[in-house]
Design a protein around this nucleic acid. Structure first.
Lengths: 219, 219
DNA sequence: CTTGAATTTGACCGACCGGTCAACTATAAT
DNA sequence: ATTATAGTTGACCGGTCGGTCAAATTCAAG
């Protein structure tokens, strides 16, 4: 029944990369096909439209992201250290992306979500769900943390919400200013936010101090 | 010497509105001209390119934003209340924009900065400066606050950086999820972040309690 | 009134966009 | 070998994009 191939997956991978690098509008269907080594006709055999591909590519990217998250947020790791690990991984990823693509790319989901809100509500809704799932990892870690760490209190869901916003806010700044170093403030900022519940800056600060981060002001 | 008119300013105003609503790519030159009531030839008489207009429109929007900031951050207002006022003003503005345009638009500078980083580095650089200036208002307020409020300590510049990231992170979420109510968490989140310096949640919490905000979880 | 520069007009351009399509090819089942 | 189906090809479509331009119009100065 026809040629068996990985055409569809190559399109998804190419789309995930190109959408992240160039955004929805700038990544043309022709460029997508070229990158995937596929003719335009094949493209429309597997996907109804460019919008359809973008949606599927987002799911594709989220599946990959989940693998990384599963590693950073492994239950065996102490809860606050999970967050520190993830922040470090994201910082390193942005450095690598900058080396490869010549500039800081930030979060692919927020990138497309910001661009597509309005023109493509279906994509925005899809991204909203991904973001909620992403934030769920923060909630899980903080839920464990409030039980394990004596100096940390408050509603884990709310704390996760705020920490996630702080995290994404710095990531967006890193993209716009093309400066990944902004992200190095993340652990210190998180310590301040999380440690603000009661007395001293809690376990997070100790965690931060033991890591490779420099707490100095960057910007 | 030719007709005197407000053509240029009408183009700037139309661009500021359309770019905020639709973003750089979706706001076509033709649509810009239609909205401004100007022919395309006139457009290119006053601006070298669409990119040129976008840059000027950003400056135009920033001038207007500064007027609002001057009101919220008036020196006569107690420093932490300046922030609370601004957060409230932004929340109300997003509600109004949603009523007018049918969806939550978020911050125009982050919107264009996210979209244009890469394709239009000059615009991104311009936005970077605007963002730094915007954050300067936070720095001023927090600089005053650490002197005035006994329960608030830490480097005002760093605190402003983090608070601004948290603020923009929530704004982006509000845009993507089309839900301005997210912003109502801002005062409580800010209180947690700022109050985390030493003991209790400091003056910010009291400020928050006295306002029209509801601290309940929204999402 | 004449001149000359600033402004305005709208038709026009080539390029590219997302998307279509009829023909063609490779595979698997019969 | 035949057939049915899945996959592939690349020319092609109408529309829109950002941008150009020669001509027309309006004003202020002389």
């Amino acid at each position: 029944m026809g040629r068996c191939g990985d055409t569809r997956e190559r399109l998804l991978a190419a789309a995930a990369a190109l959408l992240r690098e160039n955004g929805y509008h700038t990544a043309s269907v022709e460029a997508l096909c070229r990158k995937a080594g596929v003719q335009k006709g094949s493209f429309y055999h597997f996907f109804e439209s460019k919008c359809d591909l973008a949606g599927s590519a987002l799911d594709y990217a989220w599946q990959q992201q989940k693998a990384l998250l599963a590693r950073d947020f492994a239950p065996a790791v102490p809860p606050v250290e999970r967050l520190v690990r993830h922040f470090d991984a994201v910082y390193r990823e942005q450095l690598a992306l900058r080396a490869r693509y010549g500039r800081t790319l930030g979060c692919p989901f927020y990138r497309l979500g910001t661009e597509c809100s309005g023109a493509h509500p279906e994509i925005a809704a899809r991204i909203g769900k991904i973001i909620a799932a992403y934030r769920g990892y923060f909630e899980g870690a903080l839920g464990d943390a409030v039980h394990a760490e004596p100096g940390l209190n408050g509603d884990p869901v709310r704390l996760a919400h705020w920490l996630f916003a702080l995290y994404q806010g710095l990531l967006e700044e890193a993209r716009i200013c093309d400066d990944p170093e902004v992200l190095r403030q993340l652990p210190a900022a998180a310590a301040r936010l999380l440690g603000g519940g009661r007395s001293e800056s809690a376990a997070f600060a100790a965690e931060v101090a033991g890591d490779g981060y420099v707490a100095g002001v960057v910007n």
